[in-house]
């Protein structure tokens, strides 16, 4: 039985008559996480994770009837049992487990296994069929351990302090920005935020995530304050007049795509910081194995490659076409919002 099917509005759970992350308005939507390509406005009813509630409300402009459910708890929609399980992607991100007549499917949304101090750790969920992403579905993508990565970032930041420069990191405003501010050594200097980052950081704090003090760039009167500081801004702010106020600066871009030298050079920043909120190749395989699923459905990213590889090691893997982004790293980075 295909419990979850792709349709023109999004992934559809027919017996429960609801959609997962629909991109067109529907009667009832269940959402995996609050990134813009998974959280579309306009539906009537939403079910979201309790842990991500504030982010979802911000993203949905508080429109529609928004209900919440905590990780591990379950509810029933038209006879289909639904529960949320941590996906480790960003705050409140959930894998959605649906069960109907003994058949269990899990739609993982986006996920990662690497430790992230700003959200709950990914939990494998046993199921018959597992829908996985494949944004970084190539073995060239393997992430540096966070402790090593952030030590390098700290070292770079310290070097910039010595040179009297500001350190500017471009990172997605939901998730990665907070992960960076939490993980760097904040004894090095002050941390400032772009408006887009500041708004979502507030949601993180109100949800109870303990983050170091940050200050909105717009509230700074004396530009000298920026010397030696760390500024976190969304990618769309790169190469805009907004960055001029920081004076002498060294720039970095945080993304899994930075693993490839060509991508680093195209970005034209001083540092490529290999930091992703998606699973790398090894994590994808680990997560898929842990579900013990008989059937693997692969969506967005390197779909064909991951399917072919899984098949070559004897798994029943198939492609699942959706409209989630992730295929085109350049466009995605350029447009600046989220996805990796």
């Amino acid at each position: 039985m295909r419990l979850i099917k792709p349709t023109e509005r999004g992934l559809y759970v027919e017996p429960g008559d609801f959609y997962i992350d629909p991109w067109l308005p529907v009667e009832r939507a269940v959402l995996t996480h609050a990134h813009a390509d998974h959280t579309y406005r306009g539906s009537k009813n939403y079910l979201v994770s309790k842990e991500g509630e504030r982010l979802f409300r911000t993203r949905l402009y508080n429109e529609g009837n928004i209900e919440t459910l905590s990780y591990g708890k379950s509810t029933t929609i038209n006879g289909v049992k639904v529960s949320f399980h941590p996906a480790g992607h960003v705050l409140g991100s959930a894998q959605i487990r649906v069960e109907y007549k003994g058949e269990v499917w899990v739609a993982s949304g986006d996920y990662k296994l690497t430790f992230d101090p700003t959200c709950a750790q990914f939990e494998p969920v046993k199921c018959h069929a597992f829908i996985t992403e494949a944004t970084f579905g190539l073995p060239i993508y393997r992430w540096t351990k966070p402790e090593i990565l952030f030590e390098e970032v700290n070292e770079w930041w310290r070097g910039n302090v010595e040179k009297g420069k500001a350190t500017v990191i471009f990172a997605y405003s939901l998730g990665k920005a907070q992960r960076i501010m939490k993980s760097v050594d904040h004894s090095i200097g002050k941390i400032f935020t772009h408006g887009a980052v500041e708004r979502l950081t507030r949601d993180y704090r109100e949800t109870g995530v303990d983050l170091p003090p940050t200050k909105y760039v717009g509230e700074v009167a004396d530009k000298k304050e920026f010397i030696g500081s760390l500024i976190i801004a969304p990618p769309s702010a790169q190469d805009t007049p907004w960055t001029r106020r920081f004076g002498a600066q060294s720039t970095g871009f945080a993304s899994g795509w930075m693993r490839i030298r060509g991508a680093r050079r195209r970005r034209a920043v001083d540092r490529g910081i290999i930091l992703s909120d998606h699973a790398d190749w090894d994590e994808l395989l680990t997560a898929i194995n842990a579900t013990e699923a008989e059937q693997i459905w692969v969506t967005h990213g390197s779909i064909d490659i991951l399917v072919r590889y899984l098949q070559s090691i004897g798994k029943d893997a198939r492609p699942l076409e959706t409209k989630f982004v992730g295929d085109a790293p350049e466009t995605e980075i350029a447009d600046g919002e989220e996805g990796d």
Partner: peptide, 24 residues
């Protein structure tokens, strides 16, 4: 420990042989 076809697709994405090998 990856099949040749996967090596080639990796190379295709990286565009540089020396780098592809170092990453794999």
């Amino acid at each position: 420990q990856i099949p040749d076809w996967l090596f080639e697709l990796s190379y295709d994405a990286v565009g540089d042989l020396g780098e592809t090998i170092a990453l794999l």
